[in-house]
Simulated assay, not measured.
Amino acid sequence: MGQSRPFRATALIVEDDPSQRDMMSLLLEESDYDVIQCESAEAAALVLEKDDGGAVLLLITDVNLAGRMSGVELAFLARERHPALDVVVTSGRPLAEKLPDGTKFWAKPWTPLDVLREAEAAQLGSPR
């Protein structure tokens, strides 16, 4: 019999600024997450489409991204496909658009502690 690998939650980080994306990824990896990084909402949507097993527990996305789709549009798509997904939208500007129910908004600059707290909350809310 092979050994089973313990479940590790996955976080999807969608940010077009590589330094911010890397910082969030490092923080989440230290919180026992596997991390998938995307710089566009279109790439993230493909990840979510393939996540039929529900491994992705946390999505953190900037509003302004590379590509045509915004982070707000991605948040709506993510909520539609994965209603239990913990979704955070972040921006350095005031948010003019409505977010899907249950979605959190972080104004930049956020702190590393914000990321760590959200990582813990997403894992506590997970049925696994």
Score class of each variant (00 low, 15 high):
Asp52Leu: 13
Thr61Val: 03
Glu80Gln: 06
Pro83Phe: 00
Arg128Glu: 10
Gly2Val: 14
Leu95Met: 15
Glu42Trp: 01
Pro100Ser: 06
Leu48Glu: 07
Ser40Glu: 03
Gly92Phe: 12
Val88Tyr: 02
Arg79Glu: 00
Leu57Ile: 07
Lys50Gln: 15
Leu99Phe: 08
Leu74Cys: 05
Thr10Pro: 04
Ile13Val: 14
Leu99Met: 11
Thr10Arg: 11
Pro112Ser: 12
Val115Phe: 06
Gln20Arg: 13
Ala41Cys: 09
Arg68Trp: 11
Pro109Trp: 10
Glu30Arg: 14
Gly125Ala: 08
Tyr33Thr: 02
Ala119Thr: 00
Ser126Asp: 05
Gln123Leu: 08
Gly125Thr: 02
Thr90Arg: 03
Pro18His: 14
Lys108Arg: 10
Arg68Phe: 12
Ile60Gln: 04
Glu80Val: 00
Asp86His: 12
Met1Phe: 08
Gln3Ala: 15
Val88Glu: 03
His82Cys: 01
Gln123Asn: 09
Val88Phe: 04
Ala107Asp: 08
Gly102His: 00
Leu12Ser: 04
Met69Asn: 09
Ser4His: 12
Glu42Pro: 02
Gly71Ser: 04
Val14Asp: 07
Arg79Leu: 00
Asp86Asn: 11
Leu48Lys: 06
Ala9Cys: 15
Gly92Cys: 12
Cys38Tyr: 05
Phe76Ile: 00
Leu124Lys: 13
Asp51Asn: 09
Ala119Asn: 01
Tyr33Ile: 03
Ile60Asp: 04
Ser70Tyr: 02
Leu74Ile: 06
Val63Trp: 06
Leu65Lys: 02
Glu73Trp: 01
Asp51Ala: 09
Gly125Cys: 05
Leu46Tyr: 09
Val47Met: 06
Arg5Asp: 14
Gly67Val: 02
Ala119His: 01
Val14Phe: 09
Glu49Met: 09
Ala75His: 02
Val88Ile: 13
Thr61His: 01
Leu74Val: 06
Leu59Arg: 00
Thr61Pro: 01
Glu49Gln: 10
Asp62Leu: 06
Asp34Ser: 12
Leu58Cys: 01
Arg128Ala: 09
Gly125Asp: 07
Leu12Pro: 01
Ser126Arg: 01
Phe76Asp: 00
Ala11Lys: 03
Val115Lys: 06
Leu74Met: 05
Val115Ala: 08
Arg8Cys: 11
Gly54Thr: 05
Val89Asn: 06
Ile60Met: 07
Met1Gly: 13
Ser25Thr: 11
Phe105Pro: 05
Thr103Pro: 07
Ala107Trp: 04
Arg81Pro: 01
Gln37Ala: 13
Pro6Trp: 09
Leu95Ala: 14
Asp22Arg: 15
Val35Thr: 03
Val47Cys: 09
Leu27Val: 03
Glu97Gln: 15
Ser19Thr: 15
Glu30Ser: 15
Leu85Lys: 00
Glu118Gly: 06
Ala55Cys: 06
Gln37His: 11
Ala43Ile: 03
Ser31Ile: 03
Leu116Asp: 09
Leu59Lys: 00
Gln37Asn: 13
Thr10Asp: 07
